[in-house]
Amino acid sequence: MKILVAVKRVIDANIRVRVKPDHSGVETANVKMAMNPFCEIAVEEALRIQQAGDAEEVILFSAGPQKCQETIRTGLAMGADRGLHVLTDERLEPLAIAKMIAAAAEQQGADLIILGKQSIDDDHNQTGQIVAALMRRALGSYISEIKKVAGGFAITREIDAGLEKLRITSPAVVTTDLRLNEPRYASLPNIMKAKKKPIDELSVADLGVDIGCRTEILSVVEPPARQAGVMVSDAGELVDKLKNQAKVI
């Protein structure tokens, strides 16, 4: 079995994000970037499946500018075997990314595609679902557990009502939730080994997909500053304010 894991380069989770003065997006120049935390969980799970003897190869995929190779390299330093990088400077929507992942998975013959459930920058939570639809594959979203079984995978999904246990057929697409695992450290020996692992660079044309945007960014703004709260003297005053001032009840 081959596993394809998509890894996205995002602003480091510890960095305070700032909006560009012209409101065209957020500032990324001279800002520390890192692998999306949900993608790290996806890489970790792929490596665990491989270590359990259920997969021969773990391939990492990323699309975007040249620097995305650093993110792939981080995953290789965790232990993945090789990388695929689609070099493009275009703005990429979930649909475009999903088309590229689907095409790459097809080319590589990946039986299992693991993605983070969402990225911490755009928060779309769409890509995994679109990949499954495009490829007409079984989908397991927000998984907190996965195990290889005959003909497919036994998964546990975190849903509002609790935990849902399902069996899905292979080939499949799954997206990872926060509690699936605790990603490993990129160990020093693996960092050294990662230098020699191959990253194949592809163009969008190599995958033969249309990545044109269907949406347009009009403006990116900071969330409004929180207003100071007021102290109410009793429950009656609270209900009155909720009803007449905030008009929420």
Binding site: A34, E70, R73, T74, A77, Y185, A186, S187, L188, I191, M192, A194, K195
Partner: peptide, 15 residues
């Protein structure tokens, strides 16, 4: 280098 940055990231998390 890229490898040195990864070492720093690992060490930072370890600490």
């Amino acid at each position: 280098t890229e490898a040195q940055q990864m070492l720093v990231d690992t060490a930072k998390r370890f600490v």
